[in-house]
Design a protein around this nucleic acid. Structure first.
Lengths: 354, 354
DNA sequence: TCTACCGTAGACATCGGTTTCTATTCAAGG
DNA sequence: CCTTGAATAGAAACCGATGTCTACGGTAGA
């Protein structure tokens, strides 16, 4: 026999198996599936029945190979367990589903070389869009290779999306969905200054080896606010730290141990703030009576800390949704900056004495 | 010309373009890429150079079509923002990367029909493994269709993995990685009983319309512990609720409003417990002096609540890693049950008076 | 010197869809 | 009655890899 009527055991039915069973050609089956070409009602019914009987499943790789879009969106982030990233992921997933796309997720654990490898893998996958979430490296060769990817993806009809990080330059074909890192930090620092704080710790500054665009932006907001208020800041209170709980905890313990006098801590992320809370409580200090604490990100748990954490709200879900929407609808603006705002809860109040 | 030497603008270089540029055949290029066949050193160098010069990117769809594995693992869950699911996701991603796989993520938002649609999509994608995370529906037609998928994936050389939910039956080809839902609830309830609590609220029980395997298991642990201790439980204190913060908050408010006397609340998840905390605090009740609270899941923030939440620890990351490892290494046992254990923090203490 | 074999490389079929181009049927219009 | 065209369906080329089968040059063994 030239063509089996029923697929062998262990093989999946192909479009040709379905065609044979329905007594039509493969083209006709393809047309029934696509629904974009007139097929007689009686034929359509026979084909659909054959598909059901053979438990036919389309092969997306064959379809992709013959030119169709892969209907896939790739999503690259540092760590899925980061509470704010999870919300960006949710937004991406939501919008991707709404636009009929599936979602790939890759994590990089902050390793720029792995990020480049992942983007390369996404080129192989021919994803419709590749969304990079979170601050990016500032290294020059890294930027160069990212620029290269942006052009390569663009030429291939795909799109590189920078979500939560600034543009690579106007001539680089990317979609950029940012939020105002510097503005949020500026607003929060202003808030602390206006409450009367004069010795504010900034915990989570750029360190010697870990500059990222997010860090740089928030740093700048902190210093710019001091300048605007005409308040000099003590460089010893600007403490480099990674963006996690442990860094907040250890950093605060060290500050307390060395007797750095301060009335408020501005943690660069809420996770850092959680560590600050723990360390302060351990030292017997009350929040906000003895020390005020502010965070950044407005993770869901910020409201459930005791006291509630005053922090900068980032529209995380919207960030994710927007990234996908703009990447897939190129007629929309390809560079937007979403706003941030302060959420005042109980963790900040004026210092007891100046 | 029969074959261009340089691909046109906007097209990607194919293996044939590389071959033409290097002056060899496509087969040779394929061999250089695979590295599983002897190729003369000089030829290999020419091919590699051509690949670099043309910025060649392999097409995984063509490769998948000609029989190769897709090197993809699919991961299906309710909601990426669930804090414990995020850790399972991390484990999956970790192990998938370790085994050279990419990771797809799909969310279902608790809708069984969408879960089935997603699994169907994964069949189309020819994923190496499809991992279902979290409690599953108990509906009969749902189970039937899942069983069908398990067989279909198996025949296609793929694998259905049930992660955190029980087996569909011994004759269904699946990999099952569970943890002991009932045992954890039993242990925690015993803990509360042994501290002297006699009127314990169980918040998050199976409701009329939302039976899931996870819920049923935890419910059973609660009731079984009471039976083992010979303590009758008040059915009015077993309160149906969804597994989220809002349900914990509302549920507690209602219990307080109707004056149900209780000395402890066992929340079916830590998220529920967070809601319980908020409602109790709002009512001016102290934890654990007035009411003890226990949770389930041991999410990272459990330790950062004030007081720290006594809860049941689930090895979430290990769950995810194990799921991938077993699915891809079929010689390992295909059904494991991971242990849970109680983590005692400050939110539970004996009731002030009986 | 002839044969055998190793190292190396090319030709070609194949995977499972999509799509273009062609062919047939049948009804309507001149 | 013949032409025209709409509706419908098939044949075959194509997408970009992989893998099998064949072939060629050179060296070693008989």
């Amino acid at each position: 026999m030239s063509r089996r009527v029923t697929p062998e055991d262990g093989e999946r039915a192909t479009i040709r198996d379905v065609a044979a069973r329905a007594g039509v050609s493969a083209s006709t089956v393809s047309r029934v599936i696509a629904g974009d070409y007139p097929v007689a009602q009686s034929t359509r019914v026979r084909v659909l029945r054959a598909m059901r009987e053979l438990d036919y499943v389309l092969n997306v790789h064959a379809r992709a190979l013959s030119g169709a879009s892969t209907k896939m969106v790739a999503f690259v982030l540092d760590d899925v367990t980061g509470p704010s990233f999870a919300y960006v992921a949710k937004g991406v997933e939501q919008q991707a589903t709404a636009e009929g796309r599936l979602c790939m997720v890759c994590t990089t654990h902050g390793d720029p070389s792995r990020e480049l490898a992942v983007v390369e893998a996404m080129r192989e996958q021919r994803a419709d869009a590749v969304i990079l979430v979170g601050g990016g490296s500032l290294d020059d060769t890294y930027r160069e290779r990212m620029t290269h990817f942006a052009h390569a993806l663009d030429k291939a009809g795909s799109r590189l999306v920078l979500c939560g990080r600034p543009s690579l330059g106007d001539d680089v074909p990317t979609t950029v969905v940012e939020y105002d890192n510097e503005g949020g930090a500026y607003a929060m620092t202003s808030h602390l200054l206006s409450q009367g704080h004069r010795r504010i710790v900034y915990l989570g500054a750029v360190g010697p080896e870990d500059a990222s665009t997010t860090k740089v932006g928030r740093d700048r907001g902190f210093t710019r606010a001091h300048e605007a208020y005409g308040v000099p800041y003590d460089p010893d209170l600007v403490v480099p730290a990674t963006f996690d709980r442990a860094a907040g905890y250890e950093g605060t313990k060290r500050l307390l141990a060395r007797g750095a006098g301060f009335t408020a801590v501005f943690a660069a992320t809420d996770m850092v703030a959680v560590g600050v809370f723990a360390a302060l409580r351990e030292a017997g200090l009350r929040i906000p009576d003895d020390v005020s604490v502010a965070g950044y990100d407005d993770i869901p748990f910020a409201a459930d800390l005791a006291p509630g954490l005053t922090t900068v709200h980032i529209p995380t879900e919207e960030l994710g949704r927007t990234a996908v929407r703009l990447a897939l609808n190129r007629h929309e603006p390809q560079h937007v900056v979403l706003g941030t705002h302060i959420v005042v809860r109980g963790s900040v109040k004026p210092p007891l004495r100046q």
